[in-house]
Every structure is written in structure tokens, then in C-alpha cells.
Design a protein around this nucleic acid. Structure first.
Length: 374
RNA sequence: GGGUAGGUGGUCGAGUGGUUAAUGGCACCAGACUGUAAAUCUGGCCGCGAGAGCGUACGAUGGUUCGAAUCCAUCCCUGCCCA
């Protein structure tokens, strides 16, 4: 049977082992490694699809939980699917709601059957199971859909993490069984196991037996220190199949992205660029700047003199500072645009450096300039 | 000129004898943000001090009181009404 999602490995960086590849999807190819902006409610907050294309977004995320609650997956299906509904003709990935099991901690109850949520919108009770999540994801029609998992908080005990991981594996099995649209949508499994090496290993092994077209690492960047993050990344990534896309969920600071790619990751997503944008911060080649702060009041330079985005080509820090202070939407939009472009530009460079077998040197230069102490 | 309501920290505005350096909102100054309950949240916001604390402060001056932003007197200023 034709697979919706396939991965083509083009090159491995001789310096770092990072992978340069292509993910083939029903809505076109994705050059990897790739950064994926998040558009939870079928929109990357404040930006239009045209603008997302301008900042080289190759693929975006949407969320099962949110769209299930509103406007409802049946409505999106009636609209002709997510692509048509939101006017985005490039690939889409839908998260399963597994992250909401974590982020809505106080509003849900987990059982073997699934998760009962108290809707954050109106308090009403909603239920998501592996089968229901897949039903919703099938209706939404994204190219890549994620298995319904539990993202554990940090720290969690070994016992709890083990139980949760094993349940996530059983759920993955149920997801696979429930998935009806295999030719158009690729279902990815999510490796859990928290911060325990043997659990990660077990999770990966069991999920690989289920033969998903791609695999993700979940349950990372939930508040752990960076050393922990690197540790898990380093022992989990090699467990993932080489001939399939490897997705690290929820990672978006420049250093984490680079570390992930070096570890062998192909895809990352994060709300960070758009969220910090709305809060008045720009990511730049010389580190992040809080443009909301008074120091930028009379700074008539661009956000980042190395950036070619619309905001940097046309506006000054002083102007964007003013817009943010004045609560004007344009400030948020310009920063969102810039921050996404900053990360997609970073990944563009990363792909080139992999091809040139030079990612290690690039990392050092980048860190030095950005102000990371490595 | 007569009457009336008022003058509180950057601002609007609570407080009407003590636990009040003085509630709130806004403004301002920072910090956080990683599969989005987030254009959100947290902290600071009279001066000096690391801190304990000290010093100033509720239009002005004087007074009553153990104690006043709060009571009294006079003065200054502002809004509104009448002439």
C-alpha cells in the first residue's frame, strides 16, 4: 500500500552525524531538518498563510484537542479538511491532544480508556481516547497525525513514568488500528519514558514493532534542566529508525534546535517564536532582545541586521517598541513574522552546513555570536 | 460677589482618628515563556540602604489629640450653580 509519508536521507554531516533529508507528503516535500511553527487553532497566531509562506514555513502544526472543542472536527471536515478550511496548501501536522494531558493537568482525568478533559473553554466534560483522537485527526486531514499519548510532567517517579509509557504504547497500538486514512495521512508514534533511559529504550522498541511511518520523542522540554534534555536526546535519538522521519516535539530555542539536529532529529516544532513575539521579544543572531524594554525606545536599527524578513527590511526597533507598548497588533505581527523567519533561516543554514559537513563549526560560531555559553 | 463640591503618591481613584508608606486600575521598569487555557503570567514601582531600618509624604500654615490623609481654624487653588 502507498505510504502517505516517506523519508529520503540525502546526506549525513561528517562532522556531527546530523541528517539532511526530505520528507515526502501528500502536500509536497519538506526539506529537513525543519522547524515547524505552531498554529494550534488552525492559525499561526496573528499571521496569514501568505505571510507564513513569506517566512518559509514548510509545514505547520494544528491541534486535535482545540479543534475538537471548537469549531469541531466535523465542521472542518465539512469545510473540506484543514488545508482548505484555513487556506494552507502545504503540509500540516496535527498533534493529538497528548500535550494537553500535560498542560491541562488540573482539568483532566486519565484512565486506560482515555482522558476526560474539562474543557478550558466552558468547563464541560470532553473525552479523548486513542480512537477518538484518530477520528478527529482523520477528519481534520493533516498529512502527518500524531498518536494519542501522555506527556508526563517533570519530574515524575519511575513507577508512574513506566505505567504511563506502557499505556502510551497500548494507546499507540489502538491509534494504529483506528487510523482509517493511511494513504493520505501518516501516523507517527511518540516515544515516551520520561527521564529514564531504560523506559525510553523500551518505548522505542515497542513502538518500532508497530511500524509507524515516523517517530517522535515526546515528554521533553517540560521544565527539565538542559543537561537532562541533552542526555535523553542523546540516548533516545539513536534508537529511532534511520529510514523514517524523527521528530522532537516542542523544541524551539535556537540552541535546542541545533542540539536536536546534531543528535539526528529531522523535525521540531515550538510555540516559542510566536509566543515570545506576542510578549515583546525578538530572537536575533546576537541573542534575544526584549524590544518591549525601554532601551530600544530610540533604537532606529533593525531587529536583526542579518535578517531579511519583512519586519527587518522595513521597520526599526524603536517603531516596533512603540507598537508593542501601544498594544498595536502590528507589533505582534512583525515580531511573529521575524521570529519564525529567524528560526527557518537558522534551519536553512543548518541544512547547508550539514551538506558541507560543517555543522559543528557552525554551531560554535552561532553559539558564540548568540551569547550562549557552551 | 454668593452658594456648593472638592484638592491623596506619575495618573485616575479608595481611605474619613491608630494594624496607613497609604486598597485598586492605568502608566512606568524588569523577569518568565519550549507538541499554545498565554497579545499571558510574575515581580517592582516616594528617597536612602544589601538588610534591619531611617527619612520625608495625602494643597499650605497653624492647632486639637498619646496618635491626624482623616477633627478644627485661616489661607491658596479647582469644578459646578446663581448673580
Amino acid at each position: 500500500m502507498k505510504q502517505a509519508i516517506t523519508y529520503e536521507l540525502i546526506h549525513e554531516c561528517k562532522q556531527t552525524g546530523a541528517r539532511r533529508g526530505i520528507i515526502h507528503t501528500p502536500h509536497g516535500d519538506i526539506q529537513t531538518p525543519v522547524f515547524m511553527p505552531v498554529g494550534t487553532q488552525a492559525t499561526v497566531k496573528s499571521l496569514s498563510p501568505e505571510e507564513l509562506k513569506d517566512v518559509n514555513a514548510q509545514i505547520i502544526l494544528a491541534n486535535t484537542y482545540h479543534l475538537f472543542l471548537r469549531p469541531g472536527h466535523k465542521l472542518v471536515e465539512k469545510a473540506g479538511g484543514l488545508h482548505k478550511f484555513m487556506n494552507w496548501d502545504r503540509p500540516i501536522l496535527t498533534d493529538s491532544g497528548g500535550f494537553q494531558v500535560f498542560s491541562l493537568g488540573q482539568l483532566r482525568k486519565i484512565s486506560e480508556e482515555g482522558v476526560e478533559f474539562q474543557s478550558h473553554l466552558d468547563g464541560s466534560k470532553k473525552f479523548l481516547s486513542p480512537e477518538k483522537a484518530i477520528e478527529v485527526e482523520n477528519s481534520l486531514g493533516a498529512d502527518i497525525i500524531m498518536a494519542f499519548d501522555e506527556c508526563c510532567e517533570y519530574p515524575s517517579t519511575y513507577e508512574y513514568t513506566k505505567k504511563s509509557m506502557e499505556r502510551t504504547t497500548r494507546w499507540a497500538q489502538r491509534c494504529k488500528k483506528a487510523h482509517k486514512n493511511v494513504e493520505n495521512q501518516g501516523l507517527f508514534g511518540i516515544i515516551q519514558g520520561g527521564f529514564y533511559e531504560d523506559l525510553r529504550k523500551k518505548s522505542a522498541e515497542d513502538l518500532i514493532k508497530l511500524d509507524f511511518p515516523g517517530y517522535a520523542i515526546g515528554g521533553i522540554s517540560v521544565g527539565e534542566p538542559k543537561e537532562k534534555f541533552l542526555e535523553i536526546l542523546d540516548y533516545t535519538t539513536p534508537l529511532m529508525p534511520k529510514n523514517k522521519p524523527r521528530y522532537l516535539m516542542g523544541v524551539g530555542t535556537p540552541d535546542y534546535l541545533i542540539e536536536a539536529v546534531i543528535a539526528g532529529i529531522d523535525m521540531c516544532d515550538c510555540v516559542l517564536p510566536t509566543r515570545v513575539a506576542r510578549h515583546g521579544t525578538a530572537l536575533t543572531s546576537k541573542g534575544k532582545i526584549v524590544v518591549r524594554n525601554a532601551t530600544y525606545e530610540e533604537d532606529f536599527s533593525a531587529l536583526d541586521d542579518e535578517c531579511d524578513c519583512y519586519a527587518c527590511k522595513n521597520y526599526t526597533r524603536a517603531y516596533i517598541h512603540h507598537l508593542i507598548k501601544a498594544n498595536e497588533i502590528l507589533g505582534i505581527r512583525l515580531l511573529s513574522l521575524h521570529n519564525i523567519k529567524f528560526l527557518t533561516n537558522l534551519m536553512d543554514k543548518v541544512r547547508i552546513e550539514i551538506e558541507n559537513d560543517n555543522l559543528g563549526c557552525f554551531k560554535n560560531d552561532f553559539y558564540h555570536k548568540y551569547g550562549y555559553i557552551d
